[in-house]
Design a protein around this nucleic acid. Structure first.
Lengths: 359, 359
DNA sequence: GTGAAAGCGCTAACAG
DNA sequence: CTGTTAGCGCTTTCAC
């Protein structure tokens, strides 16, 4: 059997229902003035013919595709998988769909933007990738709002929502200090990404405030991945005359996990006995028994909701929000990779999660 | 600033370039007959206006949207994240994009199908979800090819590509037997999913062939997730008068990992000393130091390529492939969760991966 | 409340 | 090679 060439259109339905084509259109447009009786006739005919309105065609006139583009840079990090999933679910609930654009981690998404313009998407969410200000204005000029998820582009007027990354970095610093650490190693991600920069900055700032010497804060690059952090740690500790830090801050959980495995399985260190460790994100993987990672939880649902709000998908006539930067506070989740100091006063905004762990 | 209402169309470009509108269309259509000189004039004008052809509009006439729908049931399993990523990359290379539809794991995707029909996608890939035969024919009738990824629907004429799941189950059985195991536990996933069924079936068949008694093969349900397997194992072993099996087969890696953590961290068992274990998929997470999971590798790149081939995206006039079932053999990857029997003859199709592990 | 008719932005014959 | 002219399937005035 070869493929059907002529698809069933609203005209076919109209003919079967004995009404005009515009009646069919109205039957499928909520809130349009149509008699309930005609509506039923149309719906019945439509069902008989398996008719589904062609939203591609309708978007030509309405200028709405109900498609939101999501630019993703790093699906190797489970955090962004979670982000994708949350966006997809929320949008589906609203009758919209996600069009995926994957770019190399840390790469410019300019090309992706060019492609998504062709699809006339209603909005774009950008995460884990860079964006030129030129592309931002091209989108804005065409009336396509773009919101940055967990990053900002300095000098750009794109709006964004993000975790308070610097604040989160400070929370980790405080936890380490409370547990008695005085020398540190940071494993950073994409050096061009503001997320990594901010977390590191907040972390360092807080340490310096407490009198830690700058020379006691080392830094290595873990390329935002498990493998990157794993090998970066091995490289760093391979240098024998380097003194071992007392605490390691993985800028995100997946790197903290990579570092942790390198420390335990290759360097034979015990955590938190020999060395304490923390991450950032609170991905489900970090909660698992082998890791029990102390971390900062990103309020992902709230962040997604706010990002969607910023898009004004339901009121396209509203002006595009520009230059908004909406930080949302994270929450320290205390698990097993930082020893609890005796008589420790849990600060506000801290959750203590003691997992059942019989080992 | 309020949004731009009038977008730049091919007419604007035509006017600026001093040519007809159809010339603009030709300039952007590869292989159409147009003088190189006019082409350049048009491209130049287009660049000045930041013009990008509206592919929504063009799809109205060409009947091609260059959008492929991907129905995903379970992003909690990293295997499917990898699948998504691979599809997205391949399709982007071809100038196409992926439209995501997430459904509850194991749920019917009928509603998703109804939605994707509206978008006139060029094809649909369905994975980790169920599909009624009725929906299959609705798609086929409209000329939309649908290929099942790693599953098949009995009685449906949808084509699919999958790993040889039964064969993979047999490979695991053989490895266990070679290592001397005689009593077994399977942790299965979605009971309605053919993937889980086939792996279990192949596994059991092979064991029975070797004279294992059916009563020595237990089975519990792990709902295809880490957490599901983790708690299923705790529940099963909580019953003290149950004898401990010598080998556990997690129908997929993520469940094997959950089981492994429950066994080690909650039940205090050593793997492979006290108990051997294997998974299926070969997700990167299973290769990590804490797991070193012996498993069957799914040839994901090959599977994605074949699935895309079946869609005939480049030759839409070809008839839709029906009822094709394309199994591709997996490969046993021997790591640390099954002890290597002395003087073991590595069968063909086996890869031995000894990870550097200093512990 | 309903039908007729004019587009939305583009492609695809069709003449020239 | 290029311009003209119909549509693609739908929404949206505009009369009735």
């Amino acid at each position: 059997m070869t493929r059907n060439t002529t698809r069933t259109t609203s005209f076919d339905v109209a003919a079967l229902a004995g009404v005009s084509q515009s009646a069919v259109s109205r039957a499928f447009t909520p809130g349009s003035s149509i008699a309930e009786e005609t509506r039923q006739k149309v719906l019945e005919a439509a069902k008989k013919l398996n008719y589904v309105p062609n939203s591609i065609a309708s978007s030509l006139t309405t200028k709405r595709t109900n498609i939101v583009a999501l630019i993703l840079g790093n699906l190797g990090n489970p955090f962004y998988v979670h982000v994708l999933h949350t966006f997809s679910q929320r949008l589906q609930e609203q009758g919209r769909q996600v069009l995926i654009f994957t770019v190399d981690p840390g790469a410019e998404s300019d090309e992706a933007i060019l492609h998504l313009l062709k699809y006339q998407v209603d909005g774009v969410i950008l995460t884990a990738a860079q964006l030129s200000t030129r592309m931002t204005s091209i989108c804005h000029d065409r009336g396509i709002p773009i919101v940055l998820f967990n990053r900002y582009i300095p000098g750009s007027d794109a709006s964004g929502v993000r975790c308070d990354n610097a604040g989160g970095g400070r929370l980790i610093a405080e936890a380490f200090l409370a547990a008695g650490a005085r020398s540190f190693l940071m494993i950073t991600g994409d050096p061009k990404g503001t997320t990594s920069q901010d977390r590191a900055r907040g972390f360092v700032e807080r340490l310096l405030e407490e009198g830690v010497r700058r020379s006691d804060i080392a830094e290595i690059e873990g390329s935002s991945s498990y493998e990157g952090a794993y090998s970066a740690v091995l490289r760093h500790f391979g240098d024998k005359n380097r003194t071992r830090p007392e605490a390691i801050f993985g800028i995100n959980d997946i790197m903290a996990m990579g570092a942790m495995d390198a420390l335990r399985f290759r360097l034979g260190l015990k955590i938190p006995e020999d060395l304490m460790l923390a991450g950032f994100d609170d991905i489900p993987e970090g909660r698992r028994a082998p890791y029990q990672l102390t971390t900062v939880r990103q309020p992902i649902n709230q962040m997604v909701d706010e990002a969607l709000d910023m898009l004004h998908l339901d009121e396209p006539s509203l002006p595009i929000e520009r230059g908004l930067d909406h930080p949302i506070a994270g929450r320290l989740i205390w698990r097993g990779t930082i020893p609890v100091p005796p008589a420790y006063q849990w600060p506000a905004g801290t959750t203590r999660e003691a997992e059942p762990n019989a080992e």
